[in-house]
């Protein structure tokens, strides 16, 4: 195949299909939670890839401020968009899993809170981009915000963790505390790889689209 982007797209599609087969067909039914647990194969890769996406935003933003390369700005923009979508997938699937498992759609647990704050921060990032008309200015401002946002994530994490845990013991079981069978790990890894490919494909597409947009407007 000539087009590496297409190849990436097909790889992601194959990976996702394989991930679905493994998650629903091969991975065993979890003993205590039942089939609901299978949502983890979507839930966990989504947030891990979202973290990756926001890391890319940080690196691309720093590169932009340093070198002023328009490509770095497009990469930051695309990566933030995909990261926000994946965070939304993570929150939505977590809610769907939480209803039968915890008995509630939402609780102000430390992880839920910190992920939702991160979600809001990057939504604001996209809002800033949308509100600035001058492209070059939007690139500079968004780069600064991209750096502040990424450095804020650990602060948010610690503050929310202390906020929840110093006042009441963890009331919810943590999915991570379950000792995992090798099949679960394998299913998770395949889905993680598929999501990473999907991320790469989306970002590549979006970067190309942004480039075309800018060429048309220029």
């Amino acid at each position: 195949m000539k087009d590496p982007q297409r190849a990436l797209g097909w790889l992601a599609a194959i990976g996702l299909a394989a991930g679905l087969v493994v998650a629903f067909g091969i991975a065993p039914r979890e003993a205590t939670q039942g089939n609901v647990q299978r949502i983890m194969y979507l839930h966990v890769p989504a947030i891990l890839v979202a973290y990756l996406a926001f890391g890319v935003v940080l690196v691309a933003s720093t590169t932009y401020l340093w070198r002023r390369a328009a490509g770095a700005d497009r990469l930051a923009h695309a990566s933030a968009e995909v990261g926000v979508i994946f965070t939304a997938i993570n929150i939505a699937t977590g809610s769907i899993w939480g209803k039968p498992t915890w008995g509630t759609w939402w609780t102000w647990d430390a992880r839920l809170t910190s992920v939702s704050i991160m979600f809001v921060i990057y939504l604001a990032y996209l809002l800033l981009r949308a509100m600035l008309e001058d492209r070059e200015q939007a690139a500079r401002f968004a780069a600064v915000l991209g750096i502040v946002a990424a450095l804020d994530i650990p602060l948010v994490h610690f503050s929310v963790y202390w906020w929840r845990t110093l006042h009441q013991p963890p009331t919810v079981l943590r999915p991570g505390s379950i000792p995992m069978d090798a099949t679960f790990v394998a299913a998770l890894t395949i889905n993680l790889a598929a999501f990473a490919l999907l991320y790469g494909y989306f970002v590549a597409k979006r970067v190309r689209l942004l480039k075309r947009e800018q060429e048309v407007l220029a």
Partner: peptide, 9 residues
């Protein structure tokens, strides 16, 4: 909208 989420910690 920009400031409040960043200031949560």
């Amino acid at each position: 909208v920009l400031l409040l989420p960043v200031q949560v910690p």
